[in-house]
């Protein structure tokens, strides 16, 4: 019953993932199951290896690390796939909009090649921009946008690539308090609307609380179930530190 639930469609599952740096255990072993629309938070101080965990999940881990464990997405083992075959989208704390492309081109960059024709692609991009409150920004230079606008454009770029899971590497930490809350809701709403299993790493407890999902603290190794929303399948403890 449990195994079935864990391999269910749209689920991201980490199985005993551990990272080793220079012969010393850095992180894990960690086993986490994230259901569609669920947001799980991994909390830890800087240097705790939480960004490296995300790099392992996207397949871009620096070879100085040794990693063990498996990653399943949609019931499929993606551990050994190259980054581009995984369908795992990532957002960093910097927006990383390509400075050589316009805002619209940045979004079109992520649009799958299946959307053909200049008009269709432009329409898809304009739709995404409108959804982010950036209608009419397609031809702008990303450098002329405000921090909040850039951050929203980066979210839309990540989502346009149609990922099947979303990783968030402290994407809120560079924004000021007022902007931060609204942007957080923006990201979470979009992730839930697409039923994406989402993994957030952060060192900010407020970020973790805002997810309404389970929180794994790398320091004490405890897992706290969701405290706010109860509707996101947290009645059962889905996340936990492995053996």
């Amino acid at each position: 019953m449990r195994a079935e639930a864990e391999n269910a469609a749209g689920t991201l599952r980490l199985e005993a993932v551990a990272l080793v740096l220079g012969g010393e255990a850095l992180l894990g072993p960690l086993s986490i199951t994230i259901a569609p629309s669920e947001i799980v938070t991994v909390m830890g101080a800087s240097g705790s290896g939480k960004s490296s965990l995300l790099a392992f999940l996207t397949g871009t881990l620096d070879p100085v690390f040794a990693a063990s464990g498996r990653v399943f997405l949609d019931g499929l083992d993606i551990t050994d796939l190259p980054p581009e075959k995984r369908g795992v989208g990532i957002l960093f704390q910097d927006d990383l909009l390509f400075p050589h492309l316009s805002v619209g081109e940045n979004l079109a960059f992520a649009l799958p090649p299946r959307v053909k024709g200049r008009r269709e692609r432009r329409q898809a991009v304009d739709g995404a921009l409108a959804e982010a409150g950036l209608a009419g920004f397609a031809d702008r230079d990303p450098a002329t946008l405000s921090g909040g606008q850039r951050a929203r454009a980066a979210v839309m770029r990540t989502l346009l690539a149609e990922p099947r899971a979303l990783l968030l590497d402290e994407p809120f930490s560079k924004l000021d308090a007022a902007l931060r809350e609204r942007f957080r809701e923006f990201v979470f709403d979009h992730a839930r609307a697409r039923r994406l299993p989402t993994l957030l790493v952060t060192h900010d407890a407020a970020d973790a609380r805002a997810t309404g999902g389970p929180v794994i603290d790398l320091e004490d190794g405890n897992c706290r179930p969701a405290t706010r929303f109860s509707g996101h399948g947290t009645d059962e403890l889905r996340a936990g530190r492995g053996k």
């Binding site: 790099a55 996207t58 871009t60 990532i90 960093f92 990383l96 960059f109 990540t158 690539a161």
Partner: peptide, 20 residues
């Protein structure tokens, strides 16, 4: 240039290593 993260963004969007 922030090469590693730039490439991570492009590859997680499905781009092959050289094209990215």
């Amino acid at each position: 240039i922030r090469v590693e993260r730039t490439l991570a963004v492009a590859r997680s969007a499905g781009y092959g290593p050289v094209t990215a």
